[in-house]
């Protein structure tokens, strides 16, 4: 069976589902961050697959932009996690409840 566009979209959909479920299941800020990265990657896969099947370079450029955004997100996000860990001694998102009540 030769992989065609539907195969790539299916793989991407499965990865996106796993990432999305992971974001809900994980209580750990780093774990949630990693699941979001996985979802971004699943989307990148669809872009590259469409770019291949329509012989168009623009999909790959969009992947490039997504990667830059992910890098910026990692830099700021990890900074926030470290600052959060300094205050709370944990990066469990449930402990971030200082604004409650």
């Amino acid at each position: 069976m030769e992989p065609n566009l539907a195969t790539y979209l299916g793989l991407s959909g499965i990865l996106f589902t796993i990432g999305c479920v992971g974001v809900v299941f994980k209580r750990n800020a780093l774990g949630m961050f990693m699941c979001i990265e996985l979802m971004l990657n699943a989307v990148n896969l669809t872009f590259v697959a469409f770019s291949r099947y329509y012989a168009d370079v623009h999909g790959q450029l969009f992947v490039f932009m997504v990667m830059s955004v992910a890098a910026a997100e990692a830099a700021v996000g990890l900074g926030i996690f470290i600052a959060f860990f300094r205050n709370r001694q944990s990066i469990d998102v449930d402990t971030a409840s200082i604004l409650k009540n």
Binding site: I14, L15, I18, G19, V21, G22, F25, M34, C35
Partner: peptide, 8 residues
């Protein structure tokens, strides 16, 4: 897919 599942 295996690695993604093991990650979650």
């Amino acid at each position: 897919i295996m690695c993604a599942i093991s990650m979650v």
